[in-house]
Design a protein around this nucleic acid. Structure first.
Lengths: 222, 222
DNA sequence: TAGATTGTTAATCGATTAACAATC
DNA sequence: TAGATTGTTAATCGATTAACAATC
């Protein structure tokens, strides 16, 4: 046996910070590609994104892309390589659970398609929402989740319920066969080991913003 | 002169990771407070949130809270202390710019009030949205932003426009007197030094989720 | 008192940054 | 060729974790 099985860590030496930066590179690369650029160097990306050039090079290395000294990277190739590396070109079919405002925002956020994420169906328990369509996505009752997950083989779930039902809902999702949950609620979910949970508290960042703001502007007289 | 002025870094040794964890503590503390608990210890918080006990203690130390050995922290006091420390009890009046789906989600996300953030007015350029109300928030034309920011003394802005107009819009916000921007677009903004920008790319986290998911489930035959 | 927990200081771990050789 | 840039290895920096004394 040569490979040890760890919990749900990332494979061999790919750091989360690196992974978080890659989508930002994509956004930038697509923009300059549209502008007609063909190649781009790490120092250029770095100065645009206010990062360290070495960091860019290192980050890109993990994707397997090969650059040319003095020239940089081919933009088209780089985009494809990053997308491939991150799995954006895979069929990432997902269910969205909780069709409130945030859920609706996610449903209509076309940028998600750039991640290969394809929201098949949304679920809710509000009778007023059931069987309505949001954009091109139908909203079904939570009851149907288990059956549909099974039949369609969907195993990615996006959790956008109110906080007070988040835990309960997540549990039901897992029971229905969901294996990876993008958790947009501020609740820390307790789920069986083996289920991948990615917490995205939009509001953690607000704390930083406010702190910086007040530290800078509320200068107390000594 | 005893205090050196740095760029827009956080004051004396408060790390961003710590700041990002504090709102999570708040969410948890409020929940157990509602359950009737009076005190809570760092090890308890740690096991609930799957963090290291020492890390909790250290994080809480920065807020100035005092705990009792063997007992822990008084929950009510702890909540107030964290909120005070983060500036959540200040009058954090903000403008929201870009009243699309994501903007609307933010407008209707009541959790934001827990951060002391009070969205005064929303702005857009879509004639169909101008002068309509969303919840209790009026949507005005961007034209009015400068004047209102001045008159109301609002200096926090929430940027939720489409990516392609994000840079332009942010520039206009700064010109109108906005000093801190919560940037919910995936675009890296170029703004004058001194303006605080907090990027929140909801989607950076999706990259991690997908990567973990595919690493775990797409086992390639050797 | 005994023992769990706080709060601080030291050690470890990992990510970022620097240095530098290879190369186009 | 000269020089900018890649790609890798080493050094630094900062955050997390461990150790431990103080204390209720």
């Amino acid at each position: 046996m040569v490979t040890k099985k760890k919990k749900i860590k990332l494979k061999e030496g790919v750091s989360e910070p690196t992974l978080k930066r890659l989508p930002g590179y994509l956004t930038y690369l697509k923009r300059i590609q549209k502008l007609g650029h063909i190649n781009v160097s790490a120092p250029t990306i770095a100065s645009e994104l206010e990062l360290d050039p070495t960091q860019i090079v290192k980050d890109l290395t993990v994707t397997g892309i090969k650059g040319k000294p003095k020239v940089g990277y081919n933009i088209a190739e780089l985009i494809l390589t990053i997308e491939e590396y991150l799995g954006f070109n895979k069929k990432n079919e997902a269910f969205l659970v909780g069709a409130g405002k945030l859920g609706q925002a996610i449903l209509s956020y076309h940028e998600l398609q750039g991640f290969g994420i394809n929201i098949i169906t949304a679920f809710d328990i509000d009778p007023k929402k059931i069987n309505t369509e949001y954009g091109k996505t139908v909203i079904l009752h939570m009851d149907k989740l288990g059956d549909l997950a099974q039949r369609l083989g969907v195993s990615i779930g996006i959790l956008t319920t109110p906080p007070n039902v988040a835990q309960k809902t997540a549990k039901a999702m897992v029971k229905s066969g969901i294996k990876a949950i993008w958790n947009l609620t501020p609740v820390k979910l307790k789920l069986p080991k083996g289920v991948i949970v990615q917490d995205t508290s939009m509001f953690a960042n607000v704390a930083i913003l406010l702190k910086k703001f007040h530290d800078l502007h509320d200068i107390k007289p000594d």
